[in-house]
Design a protein around this nucleic acid. Structure first.
Lengths: 339, 339
DNA sequence: CTGTTAGCGCTTTCAG
DNA sequence: CTGAAAGCGCTAACAG
């Protein structure tokens, strides 16, 4: 790899001039510029980004910490974040933390120390806020990317969507269809990451004076298999349920399969609605009615917020609110059957 | 962020000693070591990896270039590659190239120039081998991670699995079940990335003297929707087909849905087998019989091969062959019905 | 065992 | 308009 020195020598100038040409800095003579550019092209010279980072005290990458890249929501998010980062001339360092022995603490510190100028943290419901604050304190900005509680900020800058509304909209859709025996499958503990969605669901029922008891709910983890198991359990225990609210697409897809296993037709025997709208939601059979959250917007806003923080911009808001979630009607919900 | 100088000052030593302590270079007195470690802990000091990379002429990351992270095979591969990289003390820089204006050429050059010590390229069937060679020529090792033709190496070090055998095994499974009217859905051009799988399929039929004509094949792209469309077309055109060989899981899942749309029961009316075994293959309804390729092994071997190349190890093989693909019987295939 | 010196490749004052 | 000099934070010789 050619260095700037070699390029400078070949062009008969000093490194300073090469930099000035490449970075479009001070005025360089047209002839000199030509000459330098010719050598740069001939040598295929590319500046060493590490060296540049060192002197500029600014890394070329931002990091994205996420729990598990194989959960299909994250690749979709990652893609958008990557694109946004690229648009701003940055590289995205994707950090999968699930398999780190210490849950990613060390990983985070290494990355934040030097490799990356800032950290995007995808909320997986298991955040260590104090650690994030410690990182912040060292001077590396941190943004939580997918915060579910816009009115209850975590004390770290974040991008939040209205999870309560998402749950509300989903439930309301079922109510509109005439359902009133509705089960709930929540992909987190009751007051965990999907707690806002669940609360929205309950508030929608209450608004229409439909009762919800804890016996009609199951709390599981955010996976296909877990949703399958929980749905099997719930639907067996309460055969009178005509609809299911699931807090996330992945367990909802599991629930879809569970219903089929029980010989229940979706949506004729049981309607299923969930939240998120990952790509798979449109590919299942039946396709999944779900409340889409603004994934792309969150990714973009997160990157932008982080870059503002890095640039030390004034008046950076502690919480960026995204657009509201929106119902995507597909084939897994239908009016309740008259019995 | 504290620097090594500050730490050294606080501990009453020079930066050299701090380095020696931190890198376990020996030759440091116990008392001094203690003292340094205490300051390091107190300051939460972490070395600047960029500065280290600069002086060591060795970057802390390796890059993984891939077409589209949202194709579910890649997150699975990425996870394994990430874990392997981490085991070797490296960070994995994930580079999505599909949305780069120039197909990733510039991206590649930037990353290879300095950010990463080596490049892993996930084969998406659209490789620019000459560009990869050019990168290699600048001194940055390149490894192609998922090569399909072990006997036809690309001229760049690679990890290859036996795609021919994968196709052969899949076809053989259908033949064993008594099928002889078998359609083929190939997720690439005829001699494209899935060409080996297709050839294996045809060779298996020929070995059993079962005819295959091009009219029974469709070539599509490697996506759910594309598989859906192609299957719809193929199955409508040839209602006598009793089985389908699909070259990849993603289009196979589309085919599964297409069959359902046509009112065909899988596997009673039509058997479907494919190749890869992504996680979704076990979550579809019916679950997908498929020939598993050694994804995790490829990821690990790729990382190891790349690191050997980076370390300038002697006798590095130009092609690493993985274990053979293996049939995973699930619910999408069944014996042909007597007619 | 510990310190001194030099330099990785680049950019940024500041002179000329 | 161009160059000389200094230094980003770290590590590797080589002294002592």
């Amino acid at each position: 790899m050619a260095t700037i020195k070699e390029v400078a020598a070949l062009a008969g100038v000093t490194p300073t001039t090469v930099t000035n040409v490449l970075r479009d800095r001070g005025r360089v003579g047209d002839a000199t510029r030509e000459r330098v550019l010719k050598v740069v092209a001939a040598q295929g010279y590319r500046p060493n980004l590490n060296a540049r980072a060192l002197v500029e005290r600014r890394a070329p990458t931002i990091a994205l910490m996420l729990g598990c890249i194989t959960n299909p929501f994250y690749p979709e998010f990652t893609l958008q974040a990557n694109n946004a980062a690229r648009r701003h001339g940055r590289f995205l360092l994707v950090c999968n933390t699930d398999y780190e022995p210490d849950g990613g603490t060390r990983f985070l510190a290494d990355v934040a120390g030097s490799l990356s100028d800032g950290i995007l943290v995808a909320n997986n419901g298991d955040l260590r806020i104090d650690e994030l604050k410690a990182i912040q304190a060292t001077g590396t900005p941190v943004v939580i990317s997918i915060w579910e509680f816009p009115d209850d900020p975590p004390g770290v800058p974040c991008v939040a969507f209205d999870s309560h509304k998402a749950g509300f909209i989903a439930a309301d859709h079922l109510l509109e269809l005439g359902h009133h025996r509705i089960g709930a499958l929540i992909g987190s503990p009751k007051n965990g990451i999907h707690g806002g969605r669940y609360q929205g669901f309950r508030d929608a029922l209450r608004a229409r004076k439909v009762k919800h008891v804890l016996a009609d709910a199951r709390f599981c983890s955010d996976s296909f298999q877990s949703g399958f198991d929980a749905a099997l359990d719930l639907l067996s225990a309460h055969p009178d349920l005509t609809a299911l609210f699931v807090s996330n697409d992945l367990p909802a897809l599991g629930a879809l399969n569970a219903a089929a296993s029980l010989g229940l037709n979706v949506p004729d025997d049981i309607s299923i609605v969930s939240v998120t709208d990952i790509e798979l939601a449109s590919q299942s059979r039946p396709s999944l009615t779900t409340v889409a959250i603004p994934t792309a917007e969150m990714a973009e806003q997160s990157v932008e917020l982080l870059l503002k923080l890095i640039a030390n911009a004034p008046d950076v808001p502690p919480v960026v609110r995204t657009a509201d979630p929106v119902l995507v009607k597909r084939a897994s919900t239908a009016p309740v059957r008259k019995s």
